[in-house]
Amino acid sequence: MLCAAIVVAAGRGSRAGGALPKQYHSVGGQSVLRRTLAALCAHPGIAAVQVVFHPDDAALYEAACAGLAKLRPPVAGGADRQASVQAGLEALADLAPDIVLVHDAARPFVSQALIARAIAAGAEHGAAIPGLPVTDTVKSVDDAGLVSGTPDRAGLRAVQTPQAFSYDNLRAAHAAALAAGRMGLTDDAAVMESAGHNVQVFEGEAQNVKLTHPADLARADAALTPRLDDVRMGTGFDVHAFGPGDHVMLGGLAIPFSQGLDGHSDADVGLHALTDAILGALCDGDIGAHFPPSDPQWKGATSDRFLAFAAERVRARGGVIAHLDLTLICEAPKVGPHRDAIRACISEIVGLPVSRISVKATTTERLGFTGRREGIAAMASATIRLPEETLPEETETP
């Protein structure tokens, strides 16, 4: 049987707060709508997905659906949910599916198993909805807020989506409701009931929650964001001698000076030390392993490329840089006047707030090669956070 899905995404979601409709809020790095669409598009039993959206959200929608298969061109929704679903049903007329699922855009946790149960139940019964037993006591109240009754919760169900129906029957039921002026029905089961159809309830899922309020979005974001419990620190050290030139590169900043620094690249001791600190925290070799001085392509290269590379290695592992600390060791030039500019340069290279970047300077009290003004040294530390790895269990050697 041919099955299509309608995703209702035209609402404004004002209760969720913020400038965006709730279906375009980011949870775990992706929009709510994209997560919902990806789940439906991934199911082999669904041939096509029809989104009903608000035309004002066209740019947001295009970003949310980029790269997803099975999506038909979106259609504009109506004044309420009932009208929006009817618009989606009419848009599917050329496909004429046997079964249609209707799903809320704001339910991104729908599982493949629940989708499969919905398709099967819709095919068997012609009208089926997922539901959960009500565990709280429910009260009826009057306009004054006084309790007027206590329904038996044994006969109550909290209803979810996707709801599954015979396409022809649901389309006819919507047309009949419109003709009779029965408007404001809050789900498609109610539309089918109004047309005299029986609606079967099948097992829903507790995690298939609808995101409505700001707290719902916050909980969803926390649930979908990996826990970065593997905290690591690495250190780096670098030295470059003075040579001919009229400036030195320190922390990505060109500082006017009577000499330059000798090196295969631009000899930025600060960025080299930071690069090694990050690579050290990753246990990923050192700067020489990734950018060997024997390779002519790195002759004169700017060191921001090295540091950006190391930062990207952290992101590729699903981690973040939490803090960078750089100490420059030299008698001259004076670093203090340039400290904030250096921090800003590093911030731009690694994508870390300036508040998480420390730059300090010291001398060796005229001792050693830096004290004799023969060059500059740098020490750095990097703190990163990675997702906790599951380590293999140790086995005893017999």
Rank of each mutant, 00 (worst) to 15 (best):
E203A: 13
M249C: 03
I357Y: 06
I321Q: 00
V248E: 01
G318C: 12
M1N: 14
G368I: 13
Q207W: 10
V159S: 07
A116L: 08
A42P: 02
G288P: 07
H25V: 03
G131Y: 15
D229W: 08
P333Y: 08
T186L: 11
A91S: 12
A144W: 12
P337G: 06
C65E: 11
H240G: 02
E348W: 00
D221V: 13
D325M: 01
F53P: 00
T363R: 07
R372P: 02
D238G: 08
H103G: 06
F237G: 05
N198D: 07
S166E: 04
Q82R: 07
P44Q: 15
A176H: 10
D262Q: 12
A301N: 05
D325N: 10
L282R: 01
A173D: 07
P392Y: 12
V100M: 09
G243L: 03
P244S: 15
A179C: 12
S148H: 05
S166N: 13
P226N: 01
D286R: 07
A332K: 03
A39I: 05
P398M: 09
G288I: 05
L37A: 06
D136H: 14
L114R: 13
V85D: 04
A16I: 03
V314W: 00
P73N: 14
E388T: 04
R343E: 06
G77C: 00
V320D: 01
T302K: 03
G18W: 06
G371Q: 06
T137D: 10
M249F: 03
A128L: 08
V359H: 10
E396P: 11
V51H: 06
D168Q: 13
L71F: 11
G18L: 09
Q160V: 07
R372S: 13
I6H: 03
R227M: 15
L274I: 14
A254W: 01
A223F: 10
A173W: 02
G285P: 10
A42E: 11
A39T: 02
T235P: 02
K210I: 02
L391C: 13
P292L: 12
I342C: 03
P130M: 00
P296S: 11
H240P: 01
V350T: 05
A190C: 15
T370M: 12
A9F: 01
A273L: 13
P398A: 12
V239C: 09
E393L: 09
K360A: 15
T150A: 09
R171H: 15
A39S: 09
I329W: 05
R81H: 10
V191K: 01
I99R: 04
A222H: 10
D94N: 14
Q82A: 05
T186V: 14
A289R: 05
G251M: 14
P151Q: 04
P333N: 12
D325V: 01
G122Y: 03
